[in-house]
């Protein structure tokens, strides 16, 4: 245990240094592509960390996490769109200010997670997986049908949100904003999982019957975790919308939910930092394979199968636990 923790600390320190230094190094090579790619990693990592809270710690296999990611993105894009069009939405003019739009994105995603979570958590096991998937698909079809917001084609953002009135055009600055938010998310989720709340959430995964006998109404704790995860995914979506300056129903396609799940398991279930590593590995593999062939899924699919069959502990577990016995 001690040794594993030491290795974890070293890995986190190294990763932090690498992530902080990345834009500077990239700038010396004159590469903006690397910064964009790394920003994607940070955002995917954030969403993966939130998914790990419910899958890894809570044991709640949600197959619809992309819905909250997409809702967050659409919230930001729609607020900007309404402002630009001069058409108020629900009596509100819309906004282009991150300090307003991003919390609203989290609120919208959180509310959706509250409603869908309350319904889905009445069930468990295979039912839960399929129902979370079905609800996400429902949100997907709503946005496909909303022609006013571009339907299938998606909705572009003319420019990035302002932050406290200042524009964020520089990719490096946007990168550091994402990095700071990811660090905050990891810090908070880490606190949550070690708190009394986290003990109940984790205990309910391990033995639900015991937890009920102790007097815990586990569903309430699970629902709160589900909402927290949804809100973080919503923030991730808001950042994504700003990075791509574009949102589309693809953000909440069921394949996206599957990809987030791949990142979590690839990185390591219930390992807090693992999912970020998983996101990095995912992006690396995806971008490498898609350069090789247009049909990169033919190669990536079997990789996913192999991960599922042979690497249940994920990269983080492999890096930190395996050496314990050495």
């Amino acid at each position: 245990m001690q040794r594993g923790e030491r290795i974890s600390q070293i890995l986190v320190a190294l990763a932090t240094i690498a992530l902080v230094a990345l834009p500077v190094v990239a700038a010396t090579f004159g590469s903006t592509y690397a910064v964009t790619l790394a920003t994607r990693l940070l955002i995917y990592g954030m969403v993966a960390v939130s998914l790990d809270l419910i899958i890894g710690y809570g044991g709640l296999i949600s197959f619809g996490h992309a819905a909250y990611f997409g809702l967050g993105g659409y919230t930001v894009a729609i607020l900007a769109f309404q402002l630009a069009e001069g058409v108020p939405i629900f009596g509100y003019d819309g906004t282009n200010e991150a300090l307003v739009a991003w919390p609203l994105a989290m609120l919208v995603s959180g509310l959706a997670a509250l409603v869908f979570g309350a319904l889905s958590l009445r069930t468990s096991g295979a039912y839960f997986i399929m129902i979370t998937l079905a609800f996400a698909q429902m949100v997907y079809y709503v946005f496909v049908a909303l022609k006013y917001y571009g339907g299938d084609d998606g909705l572009a953002m003319a420019r990035r949100n302002t932050l406290g009135g200042a524009r964020i055009v520089d990719p490096q600055i946007f990168y550091y904003i994402c990095l700071g938010l990811l660090a905050a998310v990891i810090f908070l989720v880490g606190r949550f999982t070690r708190s009394r709340f986290g003990m109940v959430l984790t205990g309910a995964r391990m033995n639900e019957r015991r937890m009920a006998a102790l007097g815990f109404s586990v569903m309430r704790y699970r629902l709160v975790a589900f909402v927290i995860a949804g809100m973080i995914a919503g923030l991730g979506g808001a950042l994504w919308a700003n990075l791509a300056r574009f949102v589309s129903p693809d953000m909440m396609a069921w394949t996206k939910s599957g990809e987030f799940m791949v990142m979590v398991i690839l990185g390591g279930l219930g390992s807090l930092f693992g999912p970020v590593l998983g996101a990095a590995a995912f992006i690396l593999v995806e971008s490498t394979l898609s350069e090789l062939t247009e049909y990169w899924q033919v190669l990536f699919g079997p990789v996913v199968v192999l991960i599922a069959l042979f690497a249940p502990r994920g990269l983080w577990g492999w890096l930190t636990v395996r050496r314990r016995g050495a």
């Binding site: 197959f63 599957g258 990789v303 599922a308 249940p312």
Partner: peptide, 20 residues
């Protein structure tokens, strides 16, 4: 179930890519 979902998700990617 988590690994069943993941593995069969991988199969979908494979078959979709293959047919394409």
């Amino acid at each position: 179930h988590l690994y069943q979902v993941l593995a069969t998700f991988g199969l979908i990617l494979f078959f979709n890519g293959l047919v394409a």
